[in-house]
Design a binder for these strands. Sequence first.
DNA 1: TTGTACGCGTTATCAT
DNA 2: ATGATAACGCGTACAA
Lengths: 342, 342
Amino acid sequence: METTIKDIARICGVAVSTVSRAINNHPDINEETKVLIMQAVQDYHYIPNNSARNLKRSESNTIAVLIKGIGNPFFSNIMKVFEKEIQKKKYSFLLHRVEEHEDEIEVALQLEKEKRLKGIVFLGGYFLQSKERLSKLNIPYILSTGGVSDGTEKESLSYVSVDDYKESYKIVDYLCKLGHKRIATIAAPPMDENIGKLRLKGYRSALKDNGIEPEQDLICYNEDETDQIFSMEYGYKAAKKLLDAGVFFTAIFAISDSIAIGAAKAIFDSGKHVPEDYSIAGFDGIDYAKYYQPSITTIQQPIEDMATETIRILFDLIDGKKNTVGKIFSGELVVGQSTKVL
Amino acid sequence: METTIKDIARICGVAVSTVSRAINNHPDINEETKVLIMQAVQDYHYIPNNSARNLKRSESNTIAVLIKGIGNPFFSNIMKVFEKEIQKKKYSFLLHRVEEHEDEIEVALQLEKEKRLKGIVFLGGYFLQSKERLSKLNIPYILSTGGVSDGTEKESLSYVSVDDYKESYKIVDYLCKLGHKRIATIAAPPMDENIGKLRLKGYRSALKDNGIEPEQDLICYNEDETDQIFSMEYGYKAAKKLLDAGVFFTAIFAISDSIAIGAAKAIFDSGKHVPEDYSIAGFDGIDYAKYYQPSITTIQQPIEDMATETIRILFDLIDGKKNTVGKIFSGELVVGQSTKVL
DNA sequence: TTGTACGCGTTATCAT
DNA sequence: ATGATAACGCGTACAA
């Protein structure tokens, strides 16, 4: 069987409590017995059972980050910052991915009990009518870069995000100012109620404010359900469809950089060029957009600042310094090589 | 406090064991009392404490995947397959990321105890002289896509991988056959003992077999330790250095696609073109390479097959059907637009 | 079908 | 400084 604390105690001829003191760096223990015990721990490969610890402990100083859609490159840099900031506070950091079909709040409730969490960060989930359910959580939590919808209920909720509506307005407006009049968009499927919807709304408003009436023909999405949204494949197929449809347009606003890259490739594959034949703009500011050829004009989210602020707010909540806070960051319009004056 | 099984028992006027039977779908329980109990579970938001469960349970039917360097796009598709295959077996799937400075074997030992794991998949770690330490694990494990070094000790180890040496030989040989004689490589820093080393070795051999003597000037790496290897930034800086050095070359073999993309961008930024001025080849076959403009010639690893096989072998081990098995897959040379005949 | 009681491995409290 | 023991929440063998 597994080596337990009892085994070590027996081996060393001491009580379990003494062993416990040794491995947990308690002050009141003889240095010699401690050395003796630690030696046995080494020799017999003793590893404390975390379940038993968590069961006994009332708290644990760990923060969990729940993430839906891991592998999204937009998230990977954020996590590095989380890790760093959480370590700074001498807390430990637990990353937990939520499967597509799972309910993140249920998962959070589970983890809260199991791990005696101090706080939770929800990364990139979809939170609609879930405020009530969130309130079942007994520990502080914050929604990070999730796209809080502009409904009524963002009071009493902590979040860090950009204003997806405003930022997408900003970049589409930029396209208009470049002289584009026929601007297509690659959007999320109509059922999307999250950032996809907000970004589409920004697109519409920007067009209208520039005297252009949005056209259904130019609002494009991929209906193949097997393709993940926010993927290059999604963008490729949607753009292909758009090109094949024969509608006239001179620019595309893709609601994410990955989609934009996929769309750009579709254009190149059709023998056309970016930005000579079509301008392309994206959203998010991931590295791949910067390194693409041509680099993609996009809205760069200040992810480092957002991540830092996420943790700051969460710890304020934990320390009881504040009530819920929502913070909206400004994105930066980064002009790349994928857009040109018409 | 938290609602526990005792609370539910008291509320329903039954014993804890009855509640336990209800929530665990045991056969011998009255349907009515079960309904009653489940109702109380709902009403009082009872959630079983997983730590207590794991402590009590002797086994749990979960497989853990340990991954070092999450956010590597090469891994994200693999995990989808893992998830699917593991679910097929009615097991649950635990993803655990290992921090850069952590020791994955230590983490594995921890998890084995805490979660009563049935098996472990190590994804993309570095396993050198660690065979001995791995043997401390009491449950089956397998190394997936990790680059098993060609040393002596791969017996008694299960792994799934491509032959990094052979595949990199293959693609460099292809460059030679295209007529390139001055082929640079962007490699891992010299201390790397894993796939970086193997791929560099393949590069050297291919050159020699084509009558070209490898030159130190053409073996390039980025010494900036803050940059993550296998990143675009790493490739960009290394290529920049190469270009600035003024050495003559006509092709670059980058040891990963991300590095290749970074290198390509450096070339474009210097006013040159790919493949007109320089051919570029990568390794791995990630989506971003396919969608890049020009698409990157690369070695495509059959990640779906590899992932499926990883799980298959692991379950064979768990079921005691087999001893350790190592399986080497063939990569496919995918010719993209980034290479041309000289 | 249901209840009682023990034990899982650990930490903390209280004696010693 | 160290030992004995209760408790954490749960599952289960055994008894009823």
